[in-house]
């Protein structure tokens, strides 16, 4: 596969007067896993839907797997796996039937569809539930089945819109492992998430979106290096305290209940605050994360 799986140039999507995606440009390399981060309403799903060819773009250019989503939708979708933000499993069918029927939509023969269904049920650790109706599954199990279903056609690229929202930690880790396996096989991944750790775990490269625009782009490590310091010191003071970080020469971000201080040496900065007589009621030193990048860029937290 020589060409880039996704090329977007000045891509926009408007719903009436409201601009949901506002001229974004990005490219995804073959085999790369690419994440979109951003708060509610940033335009992640709108972008995903344009890439999955079910939402016509308002303006700009978009190429998916070498084709134009507006003209070659069916051909593009035959090589795509799609996990929508909200599950849309077929409630009238059992787990196994869901996978088999879906495989049929892709023109896979019944026999092969049966084999594929069993293999994917194993992959999603749902083999013991093969004959259960979908409605009997928990939210997390449904999510796993939805992801398994997106793989029936052995896609070149998988689009995952918040794949792990609502999953328990164990299921999330299982899913990360599975996505990692896909990546190893050379499958291109495009995912959205609200979880920083997820993006750091899975993404080679990511964009941070806010109000329909891309506000930053890069690898997780480079974004952290570029926009924040290596460590973050979180400190809490009583409400009536008057510590002025600015005059202390400390880059900071005041939040409702605590203040984040950006520093390359958290312990050192904390020690200095204490010797200066500004002992916090509580403190925590941690590595800087993408969450901090987002906060530094937009002044808002990602998950409100």
């Amino acid at each position: 596969m020589a060409s880039k799986p996704v090329i977007a140039k000045d891509l926009s999507k408007a719903f009436g007067d409201f601009v949901a995606v506002d001229g974004i440009s990005f490219e995804i390399e073959p085999g790369e896993s690419f994440a979109m981060l951003g708060p509610n309403g940033a335009g992640k799903s709108s972008t995903m839907r344009m890439v999955s060819t079910v939402s016509p773009r308002t303006s700009g250019e978009l190429q998916v797997l070498g084709g134009d989503p507006l003209a070659d939708g069916s051909a593009i979708r035959s090589r795509l796996g799609v996990v929508a933000q909200e599950d849309n499993l077929d409630a009238a069918l059992t787990l196994r039937e869901n996978l088999m029927v879906y495989a049929r939509y892709f023109g896979i023969g019944w026999k092969q569809a049966g084999r594929k269904a069993d293999e994917l049920l194993e992959f999603a650790r749902l083999a013991d539930r093969a004959k259960a109706p979908v409605m009997s599954l928990s939210g997390g199990m449904k999510r796993r089945l939805t992801i398994a279903r997106a793989l029936v056609n052995e896609p070149d690229m998988v689009l995952l819109d918040e794949p792990t929202t609502g999953l328990d930690p164990q299921a999330r880790h299982l899913l990360w492992e599975r996505l990692y396996q896909l990546k190893e096989r050379g499958v291109t991944l495009l995912l959205t998430t609200h979880y920083m750790d997820e993006a750091e775990q899975l993404a080679d490269r990511l964009v941070i979106m806010d109000q329909g625009q891309i506000v930053a782009e890069g690898s997780p490590a480079s974004l952290i290096a570029q926009h924040v310091t290596r460590e973050v010191l979180e400190v809490r003071y009583p409400a009536d305290s008057t510590v002025d970080f600015q005059t202390l020469g400390l880059r900071n971000e005041p939040l409702a209940d605590r203040t984040l201080v950006y520093t390359d040496d958290g312990e050192g900065t904390l020690a200095k605050l204490i010797t200066d007589g500004h002992t916090p009621t509580s403190s925590l030193v941690r590595r800087a994360s993408l969450e901090d990048v987002f906060l530094a860029l937009t002044g808002r937290t990602l998950v409100e």
Binding site: V54, A84, N88, N153
Partner: peptide, 8 residues
């Protein structure tokens, strides 16, 4: 919606 994510 699910069908439309396939070649249909």
């Amino acid at each position: 919606e699910a069908m439309l994510a396939s070649p249909l």
